[in-house]
Amino acid sequence: MTPADFDYLRKMLRERSGLVLSAEKQYLAESRLLPLVRRNGLASLADLIGDIRLKPSSQLATDTVSAMTTNETFFFRDKAPFENFRDYIMPALVAVRLREKRIRIWCAAASTGQEPYSLAMTLNEMGPALAGTRVEILATDLSGDVLDRAKAGLYSQFEVQRGLPIQQLLKYFTQEGDSWRIAPEIRAMVQFRTLNLLNDFSPLGTFDVVFCRNVLIYFDQETKIGVFNRIAKQIPDDGYLVLGAAETVVGLTDAFKPMPERRGVYTPNLAARRAGPVTLFASAKF
């Protein structure tokens, strides 16, 4: 790939998905895009970038962005967030939503569905503790391809063995050849929709819990701040934000504050909220 093509690609990825690809990651771009070149019957990476330059809003351009994002995920990833969800977040929310009896959860980078389904299985296990509260899970992702896989709910033997306890596998999946299909009642608990976190998501409404894990790590500081502050607007005072193990709001925005003793869990910073519009530590143009 020529330096000019690589620069063009980096700029496009950043604008469309927030992904920051550092200059030395050319090998990564090449290894991830070559299969796409072949699948589309193109002769080379130069042809791929050439086509995108001519038709920036083509399916090929969208597929290129998808091919460059990392979709790795697994059931009950890191475990603790799901324990916090079950033992702390949900009981607290059920108690303050006794009248509405409705709780909304947003999984903002759902990839192939392991995260929203882990939440759904956890809720199913909670049973009576939910006191009849209706719980909605909305799972979104930039990539339609990963969401198609999520909707199908069909996982390889390898995928069901990373993080999913064997008892849960027997309880919530049926075997289809070498693959395993999620149970219809768990599938039915989750709605899927494509959504780019860089775009306006206020029409989705408010959410009591937002899982936004292992996606902002790929973004630059300014983009992270913008997303955090817009997520903050969708979470009520008594709601929660859950981030990935390598992510934090600290030093980026005062819209949220970390919960002591509950790693990865953040709550709206009410003092900052009352002080008026969300203030930023870094001057960002959002």
């Binding site: 697994f74 475990k79 390898f158 063995q161 990373r162 993080g163 306890p165 064997i166």
Partner: peptide
């Protein structure tokens, strides 16, 4: 990965 996940489990 699998052995590690299961032993953790």
């Amino acid at each position: 990965e699998i052995v590690e996940a299961k032993f953790q489990e």
